[in-house]
Amino acid sequence: MTESTHRTTARILDILELVAEHPTGITLADISRRLDIPKSSLHPLVTTLSARRYLSYNHREEQYYAGESLFVYGNKFINNVDILEQIRGVLLSVNQKINETLYFGVLSGLDVLYLVKMDLFSQFRVMSNPGNKLPAYSTGYGKALLSQYSPEQIERLYPEGTLKPITEHTIKTVAELNSQLSEIRRTGFSYEKGESTDGIQCVATSIDVDGVILAGMSIAVPEFRYSSEREALFKELLLDAKVQIRRIISEHRNHWIYSGELL
């Protein structure tokens, strides 16, 4: 492939990612400015993407939106071999027992990517939805996923030594993160106390298959509904769900496409 082809491919991906980050729409001028692409070069790209329905263009507002093809092919990813549908069933069973929200997801770079949210029987709804991303260090199951890396590896992943706050409660340093990860390795459980969403506490665990951590799950609870007694119940239910989900992934291991290596 030529250098020009690589550049064009990168531009197309940059356009899709930028538009996806603006659900209320974005103009051609804003795309051009943000990506530093001349309008003369940008216009044929967005025109083709719109024709293939990866983008949707509103002529009245003169704005671009994510198109239906992203939804269609994104759902093919989500519904791969019914793995996630089976996992939803496991989470639904837990959700029915405790009336709290459960999450299941994986690492995507240094973020967590939410793949499943189960809140059908939840009394209180929390904000994160499938497809959303948050810094792994700010979430319960994100920290569980990071626990697979040594302190030295974590320092390489976060070389600046400080962590961008999501809320006022987000842990602030890599040293503090490593301290928590050490405890997670010892106990098998991780926690979040309003670090990604104010007023929400989580207890979480990772899911390993053949000794490799592939995913994580958490129970998210409003602070006023969280207690030591309920935490003990949450842990028991998470461990039972972990066994079931590990079996589901093992049975479809060759089709598991959601996890990637950071190092």
Rank of each mutant, 00 (worst) to 15 (best):
A136R: 02
S150M: 05
V243K: 13
G216M: 15
M118R: 11
A29D: 11
T5Q: 12
N178V: 06
V46L: 09
Y141V: 09
V81H: 15
G25W: 01
R156P: 04
I257N: 06
G142E: 12
I200N: 01
K133H: 10
F104C: 04
D119Y: 04
N95I: 05
V46F: 03
F77D: 02
K164S: 13
P44E: 02
G67V: 07
K133F: 04
Y141F: 14
R247H: 13
E251T: 05
S93L: 03
N99C: 05
S150C: 02
R34G: 01
L16P: 03
A220R: 03
Y114T: 14
C202H: 15
I166K: 05
L92W: 05
Y137P: 00
E17K: 09
D198A: 13
I78F: 04
E229F: 15
I78V: 08
L92A: 00
N95Y: 09
I26S: 02
P23H: 11
Q244A: 04
Q201H: 14
V221P: 07
P165Q: 10
N80E: 05
G131Y: 14
M217K: 13
S227I: 11
R125H: 10
R156N: 07
E183I: 09
I200V: 13
C202I: 10
A29Y: 09
P159A: 04
